[in-house]
């Protein structure tokens, strides 16, 4: 059974004459241990799709099932619980909280009501394994972009989620740091990973590459192969 299954997703943004259907019947399944990259040009609806898959927004139509739980139609509180226990987010601009140290940022989801047990232990392990021990006590503005994104990945993983959603995870990083972050996302074991990006390097680490065009997802095995080879 796939970790994530989305079918017939429709989403319109804007209103009146400015209304635009950015997702028009999207279908997607992601298995455990699989990394899926979604490519598309700016404004094609990649981030919108990611928000819908992560329960941050609601589709106009369609179904999303995550780890056997139906997301569509759930109340905001229930969606928050699903995000806490099953999903980890990695954002392009890191979104670390300035008032918290790196370690506290990592621990934040583990300290939310309803979090899985063992969060503190997992946080220590992640901080060590991601090479953050030296800088864990520093505030975000004292860290480099790569360090911030590694902290953000640790935060995404601290709840031991089945699904990691990464929105342009290397968009604000230089090439070296970008490669490090992509390497980390590739090595997440049996977790399902969805990366939305417009960078070929990011898509090159994926098992599958999907292109979002005209509101629909299209799988292109040749393109995936070409990207991997070029990388």
């Amino acid at each position: 059974m796939p970790v994530l299954a989305a079918s017939g997703i429709i989403k319109t943004v804007g209103a009146g004459r400015a209304a635009r259907r950015v997702l028009d019947g999207v279908n997607l399944e992601v298995d455990a241990g699989e990394v899926v990259a979604v490519l598309g040009r700016s404004g094609s609806g990649k981030s919108t799709l990611l928000h819908l898959l992560g329960g941050l927004d609601r589709p106009d139509a369609g179904r999303i099932v995550l780890a056997g739980e139906e997301l569509t139609g759930r109340r905001p509180g229930a969606l928050a619980r699903v995000r806490l226990r099953h999903i980890g987010f990695v954002f392009q601009s890191f979104h670390l909280i300035e008032e918290l140290s790196g370690e506290e940022n990592v621990l934040l989801p583990a300290r939310l009501p309803g979090a899985r047990r063992g969060g503190e232990r997992r946080a220590r392990r992640l901080i060590d394994s991601l090479g953050l021990a030296e800088i864990a006590g520093r505030r975000p503005h004292e860290l480099s972009g790569g360090e911030q994104q590694r902290v953000a990945i640790a935060r995404a993983l601290v709840g031991d989620p089945e699904l990691v959603l990464a929105d342009e995870p290397t968009g604000n990083l230089d090439q070296d740091n970008g490669a490090t972050v992509l390497g980390l996302l590739r090595e997440l074991g049996d977790r399902a990973v969805v990366i939305v990006t417009h960078e070929p390097e990011a898509a090159a680490i994926a098992d599958r590459v999907l292109r979002l065009e005209d509101g629909r997802l299209r799988e292109d095995a040749d393109e995936a192969m070409a990207l991997r080879e070029s990388a």
Binding site: P76, F91, L112
Partner: peptide, 16 residues
Amino acid sequence: RRTLSVIRAVGAGTPA
């Protein structure tokens, strides 16, 4: 607003 949205994105509900 953004900080609160990040906290909510990582799973915080109204009680949090």
